[in-house]
Nucleic acid binder design. Sequence first.
DNA 1: CGTGCCAGGTGCCGT
DNA 2: ACGGCACTTGGCACG
Lengths: 259, 259
Amino acid sequence: MQDSEHIIICENPSINDVIAKLNEAFNERRTTIIVGSCRVDYHGRASSKLEYGERIVIIKEDGSVLVHRSKGYEPVNWQPSGCVLQALKDNDELIIKATKRNPSETVTIFFDRVYLLSIFKLIDEGKFSLYASEEDMQRAILIEPTLIEEGFKPIDYERKVEPGFIDIYGVDKNGRMVVVEIKRRTANKEAVLQLAKYVEYLRKDLSREVRGILAAPDISREANHLLLSLKLEFRRVDPKKCFKILKKNRVRKITDFFK
Amino acid sequence: MQDSEHIIICENPSINDVIAKLNEAFNERRTTIIVGSCRVDYHGRASSKLEYGERIVIIKEDGSVLVHRSKGYEPVNWQPSGCVLQALKDNDELIIKATKRNPSETVTIFFDRVYLLSIFKLIDEGKFSLYASEEDMQRAILIEPTLIEEGFKPIDYERKVEPGFIDIYGVDKNGRMVVVEIKRRTANKEAVLQLAKYVEYLRKDLSREVRGILAAPDISREANHLLLSLKLEFRRVDPKKCFKILKKNRVRKITDFFK
DNA sequence: CGTGCCAGGTGCCGT
DNA sequence: ACGGCACTTGGCACG
């Protein structure tokens, strides 16, 4: 949206003007915001009727439609992505029809007044990540050690050794020592080196084979290269899954309490 | 919003300008739309991070906050109604903090660029009515019990028993107890188990035979299998048909009035 | 595709 | 506050 030509902002536009601009926006898959007085009909899985009032309507570039009132998290009416959009005029009203198949559903918005029309080409490549805290991930792995691998048995966590604290250590199904380093976000080289430090120390200290496993939602290319060269291992651990395990565990405890 | 003084629309406003106007809007409980480039942090039940990108932020008069990307029905980040809002400046960025207690949650939005700021006093008294909901189906069955079967006589609805609320219960033409569980869409296993729970409880409690009928537009194969094995019954009931019955009933009442 | 299951679910209504 | 439950639930993973 660097170019200002990609922004259209009209205060109190005429209905005809809105219709022309909307149809162009639908064609070019722009994101549109309309603020004005409208009523809304919905027919599909259910039916609904919303009387006139001042609302915010958002039409996104994937064809999703949201009608928001002045309160609350949820839209009062909506249409999921992938619907067919149409703007037309009838009785001096602006009518926006959003139609979808399977299930067949229609949302029709009747504007008798538009205060603001704005159309954008939103550029948004930003990555969204949902994660648990490192402690959450650690607890989840202790509850559900198969998150690391089949047969992994944790022995202790936050164990102090000379170079620092080991997140989790235990043994694998073959009785080999395993050190686990947890990162809640994409692991970088620093994380690999941290793991390497512990593994190195334990190998020397115990004079036995020690496996090092980096547990994180992802690992950077460079870090992975380093990891492989150091003969360490990576295990993808999904933070969302960790959440679920913790949550389930909480529930289980509560139900246990009521038994 | 008749008075145009209730509308503020600023294109490419300065950060200072936005902060001043936002804090006033928060005070006066206005509805605000901000379009610009931002990143978002969330901490609470989970945690999330959203990198920079162009988005639409809506802050409603009840304190709910929505961050919408250019695609999809759902906001990428949000805060439910009743949170504390704060707008401040840091490192030439606009920071909006939305904080809530119980559960303690924070959404922080960092804008490095604002394309549009608009503030409204939305007046919206319009009534919203939804038809063909589960409640409509329930009312329709109470008016027209043959929707379940010939000779069915409802006794009570939304009856609280130990495991929860029974949608409708009554007796069949042979005087046997009947429990009805209503679903407005294809019934799944959960619905069957819900019904089973009530039937089980009543059988024990009353020490008499109890029939369980699942009333829904459809039932999944697996759910049907479970239903049969539990010796429960399914009755196809169309939500739309229920709505028509209600409508007819309203009409009948009106015509009765004119007799 | 359907079907099941989860969600930072949300919202509503009850004790 | 907590519980039970519907929702145009939406979304995703999986058979």
